[in-house]
Design a binder for these strands. Structure first.
Length: 118
DNA sequence: CATCTGACGACCG
DNA sequence: GCGGTCGCCAGAT
């Protein structure tokens, strides 16, 4: 299984926002659902700048155990994400991804031209 | 090859 | 709100 699409997706998560495994799985249509998303994150290679810490469990619960748990918390806080114990205020930081099926960038046919914005 | 486990989630009590 | 159970898929033993 190549988690490439998953990694790409996670990299799209803006700073200060978070996503749940379920949402991730749903957005990418991962077979098996959230579990598969979790597996993908577990396979997250280091050195790719993948913000794996922005992926949390349903309800914003931090499911990561071990030494990385603290790390995730720290990283999230440093990004401005509000945390409550082992839980993030997902209601305030939930990121809504755009429906991206595979990887298709919409080409900008027209230029904005008008610089007379407000 | 058979089993177990796991960075999950929805449900139930 | 918390803990236990089941379903799901893939990798590890």
């Amino acid at each position: 299984m190549s988690w490439e699409p998953v990694f790409r997706f996670v990299q799209r998560i803006p700073r200060g926002k978070v996503l749940t495994y379920g949402a991730l799985a749903a957005a990418l249509r991962l077979p098996g659902g959230a579990r598969t998303a979790g597996r993908a994150m577990g396979a997250t290679p280091s050195g790719r700048g993948i913000p794996w810490h922005r992926v949390v469990g349903a309800g914003g619960k931090l499911l990561i155990r071990g030494p990385h748990a603290m790390l995730q918390k720290k990283l999230l806080e440093s990004e401005g994400v509000e945390l409550v114990e082992s839980r993030v205020k997902i209601d305030r930081h939930l990121w809504k991804p755009a429906k991206q099926k595979k990887n298709r960038q919409s080409r900008n046919t027209k230029a904005p031209a008008r610089g007379k914005l407000n």
